[in-house]
């Protein structure tokens, strides 16, 4: 039997797990459609129902689409918790372990697939935004920077979500995280400016991870000054990723003891 050698031996498990997760995602049309439908519906609701009453100093659609993109990423990548939890519940995790596949490879597969899935759904949500009047004025560099930040957020949140999936006792419990992540953009500048919220909320809304992310996207896509927001956003992503990787390593060992 011919065996792969060298670096391939280290990478093959992670790549194989990624292939698996991507294949499974592609066949899980329901989940992919849901993760796109919800942000699209919210976008339509905010733009057409509430938008007229919200004064942001700009066309509301231009204000809200960056927020919707973040909500879409947050909602979509938190679905990884459910997938990881389902794996942990079934017998397949034992099979992988008995093939000596490490927890990192297994989770990395989920994270890469989740990122790919969400790049796809975020792009679709963006195109719906363009159809209903979103008019970004970003330079090529601005687009690239925005995409990079969103990608960092997707990777970090997918990995955090994988850790939550390891923590949850059941896939149903893991799906609770999806809700949490879906609501996190509300107390931020996603839909309305933070200044319009009660003052006790400012502290949270100004300093939660989603706000600098939305501020950066909005600024970059409309070619406006962004200040330090992108760096704050990236720092958040880095911190979330570091915590998630460490936490999931520990949790994987605990869960599979």
């Amino acid at each position: 039997m011919s065996e792969t050698s060298g670096a391939g031996r280290l990478l093959t498990p992670a790549l194989t797990m990624t292939g698996r997760c991507v294949r499974l995602s592609r066949r899980d049309v329901d989940a992919v459609v849901t993760s796109m439908m919800l942000p699209v519906m919210l976008m339509l609701v905010f733009v057409y129902f509430f938008g007229g009453a919200i004064n942001t100093g700009t066309e509301y659609v231009n204000y809200v689409v960056p927020g919707i993109l973040v909500l879409c990423s947050a909602f979509g990548s938190s679905g990884t918790a459910v997938r990881v939890s389902e794996d942990m519940k079934g017998g397949i995790i034992d099979r992988f372990r008995s093939l000596d596949v490490g927890g990192t490879s297994i989770l990395a597969g989920h994270v890469v697939a989740s990122t790919a899935r969400n790049v796809f759904s975020t792009a679709l949500v963006l195109s719906v935004g363009l159809v209903i009047g979103f008019r970004p004025s970003a330079s090529a560099a601005g687009w690239l920077a925005a995409a990079g930040i969103l990608l960092a957020f997707l990777v970090a949140l997918s990995w955090l979500s994988a850790a939550v999936g390891l923590m949850a006792r059941t896939p149903e419990a893991a799906s609770g995280f999806t809700f949490f992540m879906m609501f996190l953009p509300y107390p931020s500048s996603a839909f309305v400016p933070v200044e319009t919220m009660p003052s006790w909320l400012h502290g949270f809304a100004d300093h939660q991870p989603v706000t600098p992310l939305i501020e950066s996207l909005r600024g970059l896509l409309h070619d406006e000054p962004v200040g330090t927001a992108p760096w704050t956003a990236l720092a958040w992503c880095g911190a979330i990723l570091a915590v998630a990787v460490a936490l999931s390593g520990v949790l994987f060992r605990v869960r599979t003891r």
Binding site: G90, G91, R95, D100
Partner: peptide, 18 residues
């Protein structure tokens, strides 16, 4: 040990959607 054995448990360890 892992490279020398296989385990088939009570719960099917295959992906239904593959």
């Amino acid at each position: 040990v892992r490279r020398a054995i296989s385990l088939t448990g009570q719960f099917a360890a295959v992906d239904e959607k593959q």
